[in-house]
């Protein structure tokens, strides 16, 4: 190895010495340009959402190529938040239909929060049983839980719909949250992996001091695994927020309609000839913004976790 370096190094330094200025590294220029192009492609649709939502829908056609909002107005937001009268809405190219995205925003917050809190708490309990307790059949039961990962969601969606209907829970929050409230195999698996890595000695010390399992779970395990629990919480919240098919099936009615379903309804309500693009983009922005804020505040954790949550 050392022989190799000695014979190679001088050549390299001779190259450098030959040119007075470091030559432009075209490879790096091309690489940076490609990265910037990819970033623009990634971010432009977000800008376009914002630009359109601040436009007057009637002016979009004449200024289709303008990078700035066409005839700047907040009318689209007022329209979808139910703060504009029908005449105002129609004047700016809205459909005039009564939409209230405040309500859908509230519903989305309720659903995502309940699912996240319930699922994490119950899955942490299950993970504790799988990782920290010794009992016969433990691995078999854990394996059974994991097999649920293999079943495609639509397969269980059909019978679950019948069940929720038979329980009379269509168009209730309970019907929307129940299937994911108690567990998802991924959450159990993810938390178990972390609980397995916790030190046993502290637990044993606590046990000698007379602490029961409940106490150890709340006072030791959960605090020690707070970082992965927080990461999982963010991921669960985002998934619950973005879910479409299940709430579409069981939560059509206005009082429980979540943002994703409301967007689909809003899109199908717009007249075929001249859709209310500005209103639609304002509505999508309202649906996307809370997640983007959550991500801006807590995102670093998610970014750094992607290696192991996805692969290990």
């Amino acid at each position: 190895m050392s022989v190799l370096t000695r014979t190679q190094r001088p050549e390299l330094s001779q190259d450098r010495a030959a040119s007075p200025r470091p030559p432009i590294n075209w490879g790096r220029v091309v690489a940076w340009t490609s990265l910037v192009v990819l970033l623009i492609v990634t971010l432009f649709p977000f800008y376009w959402m914002l630009r359109t939502s601040l436009s007057n829908n009637r002016s979009l056609a004449s200024e289709a190529g303008s990078l700035l909002p066409a005839d700047f107005t907040l009318g689209a937001f007022q329209r979808v938040l139910g703060m504009a009268s029908t005449e105002e809405a129609l004047a700016e190219g809205g459909s005039g239909a009564n939409v209230n995205f405040w309500l859908y925003l509230r519903n989305s917050i309720i659903v995502a929060t309940v699912v996240t809190v319930g699922q994490l708490f119950f899955c942490a309990m299950a993970a504790y049983a799988f990782a920290r307790l010794r009992w016969p059949g433990r691995n078999k039961v854990f394996f059974l839980f994991l097999t649920a990962l293999m079943v495609p969601p639509i397969f269980t969606t059909l019978p679950n719909f019948i069940l929720i209907r038979d329980l009379g829970l269509l168009n209730t929050f309970a019907g929307i949250v129940l299937p994911t409230l108690f567990m998802t195999p991924f959450a159990v698996f993810f938390l178990r992996q972390f609980f397995l890595g916790l030190s046993r000695e502290i637990e044993e010390a606590a046990m000698i001091d007379g602490a029961g399992h409940l106490r150890i779970f709340f006072r030791l395990t959960i605090p020690m695994a707070s970082a992965p629990i927080a990461t999982l919480a963010i991921l669960t919240y985002i998934n619950a927020w973005n879910d479409y098919m299940w709430p579409l099936l069981v939560g059509q009615e206005e009082n429980v309609r979540v943002l994703t379903v409301a967007l689909g309804v809003f899109r199908s309500q717009t007249p075929q000839g001249s859709p209310d693009w500005a209103g639609l983009m304002a509505a999508t922005l309202i649906a996307a913004l809370p997640i983007m804020i959550l991500f801006a505040v807590l995102g670093r954790r998610v970014i750094n976790s992607i290696g192991f949550s996805g692969i290990k």
Binding site: L39, T52, Y244
Partner: peptide, 21 residues
């Protein structure tokens, strides 16, 4: 983080933005 942004937004939102674009 910026690169991850599209993944965080709901499918429905992504679909509608591109439907418009």
């Amino acid at each position: 983080g910026l690169v991850l942004l599209p993944y965080l937004v709901a499918n429905v939102v992504v679909a509608l933005v591109w439907f418009w674009m």
